[in-house]
Design a protein around this nucleic acid. Structure first.
Lengths: 224, 224
DNA sequence: ACCTGAACACCGTTCAAGT
DNA sequence: ACCTGAACACCGTTCAAGT
């Protein structure tokens, strides 16, 4: 019979799960060994027996969250699946706003760690199923991946400004842009009105389709 | 007569300059108040008199480096200027690889801080000068900005893997991809050969033109 | 106004000791 | 094999005291 201690036995999965929870509710700065050991009712030594260091813990938290968002059902339409993947990642970033900074940091630690290949593979499979020349596969996939996380990160940041909800924030931002120096910031002033009321997911999908249009439509010709 | 102390007088600019230097040579983890005070031959209190905290110092370092990359000469061709801006930012990220993680972190602290508007304004001015409908200006600018920093960050990370030069790293990465499970990673396996010898800047520009093609060419039609 | 430097609270990590 | 918890080195920040 397996030995059962009073509390749930500690495991790598339980630690990662707790880490994700702390990151979600308290942000990157909210995950410390103090908060983690309190939540798991142990000491730091116990955690270090399951996980080599904090960096690896952050990587595992990232991987577990990304893995969930990369699971989409096959529909036979690569274009539709790319949109589903993109929206899934967009929503994952919205639920886990610590994701983009963490991915960027992980990238500079080890460029092709464990998460990046899975993301590229998932998007890239659908890109290669589209009617685009093979020479642009990697470039197109790269453009899509970077747009997805960049735009999703911007959106997640917008919707988490302390104390105000999203609509309120967009209103304030639009007001701020309209108050900018017209000589220095003509562009931001010109789009301030549009920013006041737009749907984030809709805007995100529009940008995605714009990139997809470049791949499938006028694609191929450099320096048009 | 202005009082001149023995050493160069401390100033916000000198502190920011020293911070950029430390970030460039030792990375994000290399910038601490210890290394900073050593380089500037003072104590922490002196720095806190000029700068409110470390976050503001990182923001100032980011702003100073980005400002330099946003200065491009007017050529009359917005398309050419967008390419020049993109390449300038690409090279800035290559010289300052701490930039993308720092921008991502700054974004989640304050979404529209001081740097993001300047980047959006600079790209957006040229986008609005292209022949694209006004409704897509923000979306297109957003796609360009996120692609630029995402791809530049990936490249900078690639070229800084400890101990090996860029060509050596790409070779190793390609080998690793070819060794992946064919059932799970068909895409990465298929592009491994191309990855072995490609020009990073060329690849980056190709991706940029792909997005620009989507804006100027087939642009506008959602769900093609 | 500008700088010094000791002191504080906190953080990631280690490790001898337990079961 | 798995966990405890004290100890260590380090980090950002403060502040009374100096000039």
């Amino acid at each position: 019979m397996a030995p059962r201690t009073r509390a749930e036995a500690l495991s790598r999965e339980r630690i990662v799960e707790a880490a994700v929870g702390l990151l979600d509710t308290a942000g990157e700065r909210g995950l410390t060994f103090k908060t983690l050991t309190e939540r798991l009712a142990t000491g730091p030594g116990a955690i270090y027996w399951h996980v080599p260091n904090k960096g690896a813990l952050l990587d595992a938290a990232t991987a577990s969250v990304i893995a969930g968002a990369l699971a989409v059902e096959a529909t036979g339409s690569p274009l539709r699946e790319i949109r589903a993947l993109a929206l899934g990642l967009f929503d994952a970033v919205d639920r886990h706003p610590w994701l983009p900074p963490q991915l960027a940091a992980q990238l500079s630690r080890s460029p092709w760690g464990s998460v990046t290949p899975r993301i590229f593979e998932s998007i890239g499979q659908r890109v290669s199923a589209l009617d685009v020349p093979e020479t642009t596969w990697f470039t197109a996939t790269s453009a899509l991946v970077h747009y997805i996380f960049g735009a999703a990160g911007q959106n997640a940041a917008n919707s988490r400004v302390a104390g105000v909800d999203r609509a309120e924030f967009l209103h304030a931002a639009a007001d701020a842009w309209e108050g900018l120096d017209p000589a220095e910031f003509p562009f931001l002033r010109s789009i301030a009105g549009d920013a006041r009321d737009h749907d984030d997911r809709e805007q995100f999908l529009t940008g995605l389709d714009l990139i997809l249009a470049g791949m499938t439509g006028a694609g191929g010709s450099r320096r048009p």
